[in-house]
Simulated scan of single mutants.
Amino acid sequence: MSQQTLDLVQRWLDEIVIDLNLCPFAARPRRQDKIRIALCPSDDTEAIMSVLASEIGHLNTNIATETTLLVLENGFDDFIDYLDLVAECEDWLADKGYEGIYQIASFHPAYQFAGTLAQDRENFTNRAPYPILHLLREAELTRVIDQYPDTDSIPQRNIDLLNNMPADEFEQRFCPFIHTKKPGN
Rank of each mutant, 00 (worst) to 15 (best):
Y102K: 07
Q147F: 02
E88Q: 15
I56C: 05
F107N: 10
I80W: 00
D95N: 09
P176F: 03
T5N: 04
S54F: 08
T67G: 03
Y82N: 07
D7Y: 01
A118I: 12
F170E: 09
G97I: 09
P129F: 02
D81R: 11
I132R: 08
S106E: 09
V51Y: 02
P155S: 02
I104N: 10
D81V: 00
L117D: 15
D168I: 13
I178Q: 00
Y102W: 05
P29D: 10
L141K: 09
P166W: 09
Q3D: 05
Q119E: 14
R143N: 12
Q112S: 03
Q147R: 13
E88P: 01
L8M: 10
D7A: 06
E73R: 01
L93H: 10
T65R: 05
A110H: 12
R127I: 08
W92Y: 11
C23S: 04
N185R: 03
K34R: 15
N21S: 01
P109L: 09
H58K: 00
R28H: 12
D33I: 13
D168N: 13
G97L: 09
R121E: 14
N164C: 05
D95P: 00
T65V: 15
E169R: 12
C40A: 13
N126A: 07
D78Q: 14
D84K: 15
Y130W: 04
Y82V: 08
N158C: 09
L117R: 14
G184F: 00
A139H: 05
R28Q: 14
D168C: 05
E66G: 03
L117M: 14
A167V: 15
P176W: 01
A47S: 12
F25E: 10
I132Y: 08
K182C: 00
Q156V: 13
D160C: 03
L141A: 11
P29F: 07
Q172K: 10
E88S: 15
S54P: 00
I101C: 09
T180F: 03
D81M: 04
C175K: 13
R36S: 15
L135W: 07
T67H: 06
E55Q: 14
E122K: 10
D95Q: 07
R173F: 12
D168E: 15
H179F: 06
I18R: 06
R30C: 11
Q156C: 01
D33M: 14
L69M: 13
V86L: 07
A139L: 08
D44M: 00
M165Q: 03
A38G: 12
Q119H: 11
A110W: 01
E66L: 01
R143Q: 14
G57D: 12
S50A: 14
K34W: 05
H108F: 06
F170V: 06
Q103Y: 02
G115V: 12
T116P: 01
T116E: 14
A128I: 06
D120F: 10
T45V: 15
